[in-house]
Amino acid sequence: MSGSLLYLSGVSKSFEGFRAIDNLSLVVLPGELRAVIGPNGAGKTTMMDIVTGKTRPDEGEVLWKETVDLTRADEVETARLGIGRKFQKPSVIESLTVAENLELALKGPRGVGATLFGRRTREEAREIERLLALVRLEEARDALAGSMSHGQKQWLEIGMLLAQDPELLLVDEPAAGMTDAETMRTAELLREIAGRHAVVVVEHDMEFVRALGCKVTVLHQGRVLAEGSLAHVSANAEVIEVYLGR
């Protein structure tokens, strides 16, 4: 498909005979906001592992901007290409402050020498302030990330993702453990950043998906079951069966 940011075609992956991903195809366009839903074991996390180079697929094509073969890249390379990932369990650096977490995530040289001799520039400081405001953690600037609440950690991690300025954000269950107000605020935030970045959100919470108001892909047993607007997929008989049981 022309102009795609991320292109998966015929991707399969088995673990000890269990097919986690089965002939999966998926296209994400630049700046697109996309929700991926599906029951447990549908292959959502494995799909993210494959895109970020953590897991190698058994077969299939994974292309970045139509040219770069992601099956040959590892996590570091995909990160440097411009793919950011937020884990299901918030993963921040607990013994650094919130500001330092963002600083490490900021786009910039990642080499040993550069970090040993580099100093925080004024620009970087400004960018950190902007991100702190965006994820509403200005007050917590100098607090240890480990002392944050679960929801704050989720936001901090989203902030770190944005600091990387990736072209594609993979966000795994961002609303887990959040209050309703926080959930809505998170959806709002993701809508805001879509457009500049492509965002793929994996989520269980239907309210949250509704709030995103975007195209939805339903995964089941490692395959795409349905794709379209939330209303469209909700009307799909197969989807109803998977979700409501038989």
Binding site: E75, A79, G111
Partner: peptide, 29 residues
């Protein structure tokens, strides 16, 4: 070393190696 940005990358590796990698840091280096 500890006070440099490199020191903070090292702490990141200690606390959340996976995260450091997904931030684009070559952990092994």
């Amino acid at each position: 070393i500890a006070a440099s940005k490199l020191g903070r990358v090292l702490v990141a590796i200690r606390d959340a190696e996976e995260r450091a990698r997904f931030l684009g840091y070559r952990v092994e280096h």
